[in-house]
Design a protein around this nucleic acid. Sequence first.
DNA 1: ATAATAATTTAGGCTTGTCTAAAAATTTTT
DNA 2: AAAAATTTTTAGACAAGCCTAAATTATTAT
Lengths: 227, 227
Amino acid sequence: MDRLQIRPKPMHSFTEENYLKTIYYLSARQEGEVTTNSLAEMTATKAASVSDMLRKLAEKQLIHYKKYQGVRLTEEGERLALKVIRRHRIWEVFLSEKLGFGWDEVHEMAEELEHIRSEELVQKLDAFLGYPQFDPHGDPIPSPAGHMPAVEYSKLSEVTIGEEVQVMGVLEHSPEFLQHLDKTGLNLGCRVLVQDVNVFDKSVSVQINHEKTLFVSNEVARNLLVN
Amino acid sequence: MDRLQIRPKPMHSFTEENYLKTIYYLSARQEGEVTTNSLAEMTATKAASVSDMLRKLAEKQLIHYKKYQGVRLTEEGERLALKVIRRHRIWEVFLSEKLGFGWDEVHEMAEELEHIRSEELVQKLDAFLGYPQFDPHGDPIPSPAGHMPAVEYSKLSEVTIGEEVQVMGVLEHSPEFLQHLDKTGLNLGCRVLVQDVNVFDKSVSVQINHEKTLFVSNEVARNLLVN
DNA sequence: ATAATAATTTAGGCTTGTCTAAAAATTTTT
DNA sequence: AAAAATTTTTAGACAAGCCTAAATTATTAT
């Protein structure tokens, strides 16, 4: 039979890839080492399970790890994490641009697709999509070599009155938040003129695309990236 | 953090899906029950492991199974198997048509992609591809409802002298065989006029697309589906 | 500085899916 | 029809990845 399922054992498991990715994300938004507890929370497991896995990843030289001291990716670990993130974001672009999924729907499917292990597949998909630079949430797509492009956006909550900016991304990726943005018309790329800031609750009054005026809570404004 | 990886536990594991799919394929090409040994060979595992899994699948009512008596899919089992096969073949079309992979390359990647569990993804992908009826090897794509279209092709080895037929599919799916067809120009859809059959080794002399003449071994002719 | 609290790791278990070796059932041969 | 050979199942183990409970280390408060 020609459908034998003999495939070479992959270097790194699905689970290992998820840990590396998560360590990368946690490192990115906070200085210093990543803690066991924060990893447990992010991966929806228990601290004991995380400890096990950290020992394993350290043995494989993918993380720097001293007991009780938190964790940091090695060069190899970061390279791998960025590979996974690259795959994730490229698949998100595909799902959004080619299949018409909303930006609130793509993350979950990409969580599975990111683990498909074919270099050539990602490379051809990237070409098919025209080498996109950003995913549907405005997050930059790492280079094939494993480099995360630097982006420097402000939060909408920090823009001064009178300035006009453009929505470039989000800090919060939950479907609920994204659906709320859809509802209010705050899509990626739309122009936002800050008309007023409420000194009491820090909510922002904005004009969108030189059309309708909108009130944006500070909670939302803090999670909107603009430039 | 919004990237929590809480996903509902899927009804059926990756592994279970592979067993069901394999049982389906083995049933299709041979009458009666599928044996433990043939499953072991196909899934590249040992008979003991297969036995374990069969007990488990029987408990889940996905197969009819009496010890030592071989195995047959239940209706539910067949529905699931066809769902997996549908996903597999739709992904193959995508890889071939949109990303430009050769028909000898798509199977392995589709083996992973077929397990992505989103109904909506397959449905949108299907639409994106224009509801293809056949995969790149000419195999029919099961309907969303779980029905395998009947196709009735002959083998090239059974065509009588003087007949002109069209290549519609292959029985052997190994990259080696497919690459050999590529090399000789025997692609899907090409027209083949049977000029002569060698009585000694049953090799076939054919003219392709009213152009070049070619000798096809019986081994190859038996694995080429035509109509 | 020490006691209380919090975070982390270890110890021991569980499940899934695999294995080898041995036992049991079936099929084939004589 | 019994013996031999083959196939299949059972028994017992193992690795990965998770768990709970207990022990250990670090941090915070007094």
